[in-house]
């Protein structure tokens, strides 16, 4: 554990908490892509199957459980509790275009051809693109609530901080994981456009609005 890794995890946790409290207190999931949330639930489910096979640390277990439970809680809020507020007409990204390539790539490029390892790899590939339906939704409506922007910023920062963690680990331990690094870079790059808008608009108190 190093400072980048810890900040990355906290940033991830913060993103999830921002999203849950936004939906819960506004009693609305307007502007939130349910499809991205479905992909995240698939990501955590496929990745954290090792909860029952290996013990890493109490921290590791607790965070995994929190990420899993919160992803399903988010789906519950969107699809059941506040389903009337779900903006499905703007959430039209075809997720099979992300799921299928992630499955094929995981079968072809992995560290070991075993069920758990392929599922882990699949989750890494899928996570790197899972935000696309949400970004697509923002671009389609041309705007995002500030709270949604904060959520996206925290979520995007997490993999960026993880890249620093990978640098640090390579530097100090000589340990690296090419699959996680490359996917993490792809994931972070996808947020770059958004990061720019966040810094130039949202942080200056303006609403995130895309030029027409």
């Amino acid at each position: 554990m190093n400072i980048f890794r810890l900040l990355g995890d906290l940033s991830h946790l913060l993103a999830i908490m921002i999203l849950l409290q936004k939906i819960f207190y506004s009693r609305s999931c307007a502007g939130i892509s349910a499809k991205s949330q479905v992909l995240f639930a698939i990501v955590y489910t496929a990745r954290y199957l090792d909860l029952v096979t290996v013990y890493v640390s109490l921290y590791n277990i607790s965070m995994k459980v929190v990420f899993l439970l919160s992803s399903y809680a988010t789906l519950y809020l969107i699809y059941l509790k506040f389903r009337a507020t779900y903006d499905r007409n703007h959430d039209t990204f075809r997720i099979e275009f992300l799921l299928l390539p992630a499955i094929v790539l995981a079968l072809l490029i992995n560290h070991q051809f075993s069920a758990l390892e392929v599922l882990w790899t699949f989750s890494i590939y899928l996570e790197s693109v899972a935000i696309l339906p949400q970004l697509f939704m923002v671009s389609k409506t041309g705007e995002a609530e500030s709270i949604t922007s904060h959520y996206l910023f925290a979520l995007g920062s997490y993999r960026g901080l993880y890249i620093l963690n990978w640098f640090y680990r390579y530097w100090t331990e000589g340990h690296y994981d090419l699959i996680a690094i490359v996917a993490g870079v792809v994931q972070t790059v996808l947020y770059c456009d958004f990061f720019y808008l966040y810094v130039t608009k949202v942080l200056k108190g303006k609403k995130l609005q895309l030029p027409a």
Binding site: M1, R5, D9, H12, D50, V54, Y55, V56, S57, N60, M63, K64, F67, H111, Q112, S114, E117, W120, Y162, N165, D177, A180
Partner: peptide, 10 residues
Amino acid sequence: TAFIPPKDEL
């Protein structure tokens, strides 16, 4: 098959 160490990252 190669040994894959437990993954620490989340």
